[in-house]
């Protein structure tokens, strides 16, 4: 589904060119939940922009669904650390926003308003925000805003969900809640996910495969398959095998930070 082939990305910086990624190769299968972890500044966010086609690689090739990426891929939904909801729109209208942009929905939205509204309400129901559809973002907590942000990323039924540290700004309890929300959404809708994070437990709990990146210039130094059975209960987070996984990932990252 997604393939990065020997991708290098550099851009002009203050003192000469900066290489964010060097010779990175990565494959994510259709429906796979992939996590990318690494020390900060390793070019994880750059990776996201490459896959969605917001930037073009300096060298190498990015393929999505067998096609070379040459511009915004339009099959992706994105969510970031900041929920970035529009304060002048209600939660429901925020969730509907992508439909006003993505074709063919944008042409149909006016005619099939009720159907699209129902779809948005369903999605809000899954994340537990049904009763908050008419509220405004600033009336909600950070965790609720982030749920709405996930709905916005998924409303147009994208084949690919890109998450850039979506839960990093939340407290530990809210984060666990949202891990479950994301797990359920993924199992229900079956999209492909690339989750960029520095939270190893988050990656271990959610992902099928974890890719470890080195410090800048970033490249994938290790790929781990996570084979805890699904559906994974939250208790997995406290199982010895899980702790071992997190521990060895942590050591790997400590190692690449040294290097």
């Amino acid at each position: 589904m997604i393939r990065l082939l020997d991708v290098t990305l550099s851009y002009p910086g203050r003192s000469g060119p900066v290489t964010a990624l060097s010779h990175t190769s990565l494959t994510v299968e259709k429906g796979e939940f992939a996590a990318v972890v690494g020390p900060s500044g390793c070019g994880k966010s750059t990776l996201m922009k490459l896959v969605t086609g917001l930037i073009r690689p300096t060298k190498g090739k990015v393929e999505v669904e067998g096609q070379d990426v040459e511009g915004p891929v339009k099959i992706a939904g994105m969510a970031f650390q900041a929920a970035n909801l529009l304060p002048w729109r209600s939660v429901l209208d925020n969730v509907i926003l992508p439909l006003e942009i993505v074709s063919p929905h944008r042409a149909r939205l006016r005619r099939d308003k009720a159907a699209y509204r129902d779809r948005a309400m369903d999605l809000l129901g899954v994340v537990g925000l049904k009763d908050f559809a008419d509220r405004y973002p600033w009336e909600m907590s950070g965790g609720m805003q982030q749920r709405a942000s996930l709905c916005r990323a998924l409303i147009h039924e994208p084949a690919l969900l890109m998450l850039d540290e979506p839960f990093a700004a939340l407290d530990a309890f809210t984060r666990e809640e949202l891990l479950v929300v994301l797990r359920d959404l993924w199992q229900r809708l079956g999209f492909t996910v690339i989750l960029v994070t520095h939270d190893l437990r988050e990656a271990g709990f959610l992902a099928d495969t974890i890719h470890v990146m080195s410090a800048r210039p970033g490249r994938i130094v290790e790929t781990r398959t996570v084979d805890f059975p699904r559906p994974r209960p939250l208790d997995v987070l406290y199982a010895p095998a899980f702790t071992d996984l997190v521990h060895s990932l942590r050591n790997k990252i400590a190692e690449v930070r040294q290097a």
């Binding site: 915004p72 994105m78 969510a79 970031f80 529009l86 993505v102």
Partner: peptide, 20 residues
């Protein structure tokens, strides 16, 4: 980031201007 979200959906500059 909001601009990225919309651009990744294929929004034109005019769309981003109008919606955001």
């Amino acid at each position: 980031e909001l601009e990225d979200v919309l651009r990744a959906l294929g929004a034109s500059k005019l769309d981003i201007m109008r919606k955001v």
